[in-house]
Computed example of a mutant assay.
Amino acid sequence: MRTEALFDPLPLPVAPSLLGESPFWHPSERALYWCDIPGRRLNRFDPRILRHDCWDFETEPACCMPALGGGLVLGMRDGLWFYRPEFHERTRLASPPYDPACERFNDGKADPQGRVWVGTLYEPKDRPAAALYRWRRGTLDRVAGDITVSNGLAWSPDGRTLYWSDTTSHAIMALDMDPQDGSLSHRRVLQQFPLKTPGQALETYGGRPDGAAVDSEGCYWVAMFEGQRLLRLSPDGAVLQEVPLPVRCPTMPCFGGDDLRTLYLTTAKHGRPAAELARQPWAGCVLAMRVAVPGLPVNLALI
């Protein structure tokens, strides 16, 4: 198993987020977007001119994705929205299918056909009450459940396998997807990581699966929250590569740059111990590193 990237991770010259999530590389803008969930902020960074723009909201933006024809889709606590950053204007696509007092949208992405997939996070985390939803042209359908924290959405290069994780149970799942109608079948566990035991030192804990992305070889890159590492898994779940990180809590990778060989990785500092943050000043920053295998381009949502 390889344990290196081509270059060591370095932070973008942007102030750290509390909980960075949902990064994507916008192909026409040639810029990186990501959310700061508890910071209630959407970020954009242009690496060519080192320009950082941000937009603040009254509620949490948990995920963002580009829309065909311009604008973005945002999954927020108060629903699913179409958003135009240039006007700071939201248009509701769907109301929240849950009680916003105890649940919110979390990880979300568009599939290769432009359908929007977004999961939820059940905040009490005392039972598997979260779910995965699929939105297409005005209709929001619940398509899977029995989880607590929906994460890790990504698709195989042929679009026939959906990857999905439940961070709380430390499980990454794979499901067969019909590209024509988006129906799912044959849900199975791709990789199961050991649960954290009471009192276990973080140095001996491998972390739990958070956000993810797939590269052009069909391998699944997953951020291991609290594990201080990024893993590259084969399509059958074998660990092919481990990248040690300078921060305890990575949250989600994506591929960017003109050649899609720059891996961007959001991280978190929210709620972390003061001593840990003192040792890890890059916590909350977006890290960038070069990788050998390019990623897949981001999918555009059809509105």
Rank of each mutant, 00 (worst) to 15 (best):
D126Y: 00
P179R: 09
G108R: 03
L184I: 06
G69Q: 05
P294V: 10
A130R: 06
S17N: 07
D210I: 06
V293C: 14
P273D: 06
P281W: 12
R208M: 07
V247C: 07
A131C: 12
E203Q: 13
T139S: 13
C249V: 01
C35A: 10
R232H: 02
A5E: 06
D176E: 10
S95W: 07
L202M: 13
T139M: 10
C102L: 10
T197L: 15
G145T: 09
T266L: 02
F255A: 08
S22P: 01
L68P: 00
L195F: 07
R187K: 14
S169V: 09
E29V: 00
A130C: 06
A274V: 11
W25I: 04
E21A: 08
A94K: 01
W221H: 10
D111I: 04
Y83W: 09
S28Q: 15
M252Q: 14
A223V: 13
I49N: 10
A238L: 08
Q192L: 15
V298F: 01
P16G: 08
A101D: 14
G207H: 10
Q200F: 11
D259Q: 05
P96W: 07
L190W: 01
E226S: 12
E21T: 02
P281N: 11
E21D: 13
A15W: 00
V143K: 12
Q191K: 15
R104E: 00
M289R: 00
R2F: 09
G138V: 11
A130M: 07
P209M: 04
A283G: 04
Y98C: 02
D210L: 06
E217C: 09
L10M: 06
L6G: 02
T251Q: 09
V143Q: 07
L287Y: 05
P112F: 07
A212H: 07
D146P: 01
L50A: 15
V293I: 15
P157F: 11
P16D: 04
E217Y: 03
L184N: 07
S22N: 06
T120G: 10
R51M: 00
P253W: 10
N43H: 15
D158I: 08
A201C: 08
E29S: 09
Y264P: 00
C54V: 01
D126A: 05
D111Y: 07
R134N: 05
N299K: 00
S22E: 04
P294C: 09
H170K: 05
W164E: 02
C249P: 01
L263H: 02
N43S: 11
Y220H: 04
T204E: 12
A101E: 14
Q228R: 15
P209C: 03
R290H: 11
A110P: 02
A129T: 03
L10T: 12
L240A: 05
D166Q: 09
A101Q: 15
T204R: 15
D8E: 14
S95N: 08
W282H: 11
G256I: 03
D36N: 04
H186R: 14
L245S: 05
G206W: 09
P38H: 06
Q192Y: 04
C219L: 01
C35S: 06
T262L: 07
G206S: 14
